[in-house]
Design a protein around this nucleic acid. Structure first.
Lengths: 245, 245
DNA sequence: GTAGAATTATGTTTTACAACACACAAAGAT
DNA sequence: ATCTTTGTGTGTTGTAAAACATAATTCTAC
């Protein structure tokens, strides 16, 4: 058996196991109400796709066609502003679904999605998802719930980004990373490594100011920094800064 | 028949006609799939409430319990920021529904709602709405659609408010008012009269700057202003300013 | 009708942040 | 190894918009 066959077989094995995990074990809990006929339909249509670091998954103005399911890696949703200043709107972790909003709104994407690191995605045609929603009320509720939570975050983010000062915005971003990805085993190192530029695009500031403000936090012993590795020493203080300013 | 009886009767008549119009004629089209038994349930639970100018309908951190339906008047959804600087998030016109997001997200309100002018609202317990959603797929789709559109607007607003300069933000606000409420019969006067302060809270700027920038537009013959009456002379230019700046 | 408050208007000062410029280190390519 | 590119760190300058101050005008209440 040559290496190609082996690789294909191992890949098929991987696909099979992943799909089984996603559809059957169903970590987000949205498929469990489907009967086995429906489940077969989904497993048939479900495809796996890998993305390289920084590869674009979809772009603003594209027509939405698929529901994406983040299985491994990290994904950012962002929107390009004037003069090419992108704003990161949302960061995703496994297992989260995305790409469906624009389809439901019946409009082109208003934001773009890109892989943050090597990433594996599941992909399901929205037409099929629509069909399933119409058949299964629990699925409808899943999306109502998700959309509602995202809308709340988005409204809150508006205040954070427009009214807080630089330190408050950066603190807010660090807290978001902490809440979204958590700590490593040492219970203090953020489980995501971002460029200063991404940190800036998350907090609505220039890269220089992200660097400067981060250094400020280091001087105040609120965090330590080792390259892109950020350790949070004083989470309470960080939340205080985020809250008041 | 004395005036009190007459007033009560006329009010009952008004209530009956409004409810009939809302539930049966169903301007937003969300109740039409209900059978008559279901419709009766809704008409029974549906109550009318009047609000004075500036009266608060619900406030941030309240527990959401009702679906509100704006029948007459105007309503603003806003969020108080630091130092009491409110940001207007959304403006509503008849017939639009609101107040449901937080209930669906299973969290307290993150924004407040207040009447902009004397306003009549319909009110329906969310528990009942939930029940109806579970029974009627079209109703589920209605909310999925609404939430999706609102989330898109909210994400877009983030860029507008954070990246555009003052003139661009104010122009954007005027365009929003135009698209939301339209013109009067003269085809140029905005069909909403806002205080400069509200205009400022819509565009993320201080009241002084709203006044100043508005004067600027007047000097440039883009608009005319007569108290709170705003006439748009050059909508094309306004859209251009909104887009690039 | 007058007092008082709220809203609108405009000028002046202050400041937070972007823009720019440059130095240096790390990572990839040749 | 050397060159190039990409990311990081820091000082300097410029400016958009907030903050503050103070009239003038328009609403509201009694």
């Amino acid at each position: 058996m040559n290496w190609l066959v082996a690789s294909v077989l191992s890949r098929l094995q991987m696909i099979k196991s992943v799909i089984e995990r996603v559809i059957s074990d169903d970590m987000a809990g949205i498929w469990k109400i489907l009967d086995s006929e429906e489940k077969r339909k989904i497993v048939d249509a479900f495809t796996l796709q890998n993305f390289r670091k920084n590869q674009i998954i979809y772009a603003e103005k594209d027509t939405p066609e698929n529901l994406w399911c983040l299985l491994k890696g990290k994904v950012k949703l962002y929107k390009d502003g004037l003069g090419g200043r992108p704003q990161i709107l949302r960061l995703l972790r496994p297992v989260q679904y995305f790409g469906y909003r624009a389809y439901f709104a019946d409009e082109p994407y208003v934001s773009s999605a890109a892989a943050f690191e090597p990433t594996t995605l599941g992909c399901l045609p929205m037409a099929l998802v629509s069909e399933m929603i119409t058949q299964n009320n629990r699925l409808a509720w899943f999306f109502i719930h998700e959309l509602s939570r995202n809308l709340g975050s988005s409204d809150t983010k508006i205040i954070n980004l427009t009214q807080k000062h630089i330190r408050g915005r950066l603190a807010e971003a660090l807290i978001l990373l902490r809440d979204n990805y958590g700590y490593e085993d040492d219970n203090s190192t953020l489980n995501i490594f971002m460029a200063r530029e991404d940190l800036a695009n998350l907090s609505n500031m220039t890269t220089s100011n992200a660097i400067r403000t981060l250094s400020g936090f280091v001087n105040e012993k609120i965090i330590t920094v080792d390259g892109r590795r950020i350790k949070i020493l004083n989470e309470t203080m960080l939340r205080k800064i985020s809250k008041f300013g």
